[in-house]
């Protein structure tokens, strides 16, 4: 009886699943990326479907995008209008290429030149970039900043 039920149920499962296409993206959407101008921050908000909050702080500007699933992306903009730092907290890994733009090659090169630390974070420090990506399933966080773009008298620790 148990087996019959099992098989019966399985017949249903083969044909009927509550899976539906939610969104098809042909191309990766543009983001305000590290080292570039802040003009496309609004696009990020659309991509993340989140609430955006802008804060003017002493010596820099912070855009914080919060989405309903708990993803928080923060973008730090210098007085010259360039994104000098980015941080994230999310249940899954962000698209780093979108966040880092041309700086993603720095991370790619670092990844290829070192042994994997199983279950561990990735920390990259070069002349051009400081980057960390860490966490575990359902909990990811990290940050990246460009030392040469840090505004005068602003510590890298503001990128958090």
């Amino acid at each position: 009886m148990e087996n019959l039920e099992e098989r019966h149920r399985w017949e249903y499962m083969k044909t009927t699943f509550g899976v539906l296409v939610m969104l098809v993206l042909g191309t990766a959407p543009a983001w305000a990326v590290l080292g570039e101008y802040e003009s496309s921050v609004g696009l990020d908000q659309q991509v993340l479907r989140g609430e955006i909050r802008e804060e003017v702080r002493q010596g820099y500007k912070l855009h914080q995008i919060t989405s309903p699933n708990g993803t928080i992306v923060r973008e730090y903009v210098s007085p010259e209008g360039k994104v000098f730092g980015i941080s994230w907290q999310a249940p899954f890994m962000p698209n780093l290429q979108q966040l880092l733009g041309s700086y993603s090659t720095e991370v790619q090169q670092a990844v290829q030149s070192r042994a994997r630390r199983r279950g561990g974070p990735l920390v990259v420090r070069t002349d051009k970039l400081v980057f960390v990506s860490g966490g575990h399933m359902r909990f990811f966080r990290g940050r990246a900043y460009v030392p040469s773009l840090l505004p005068n008298n602003i510590s890298a620790e503001v990128v958090r």
Partner: peptide
């Protein structure tokens, strides 16, 4: 042991 982050805002304790 190894590192988890680059400062207080990204550090954590992963007891592996």
């Amino acid at each position: 042991g190894g590192d988890s982050g680059t400062g207080a805002s990204t550090d954590y304790a992963d007891f592996g």
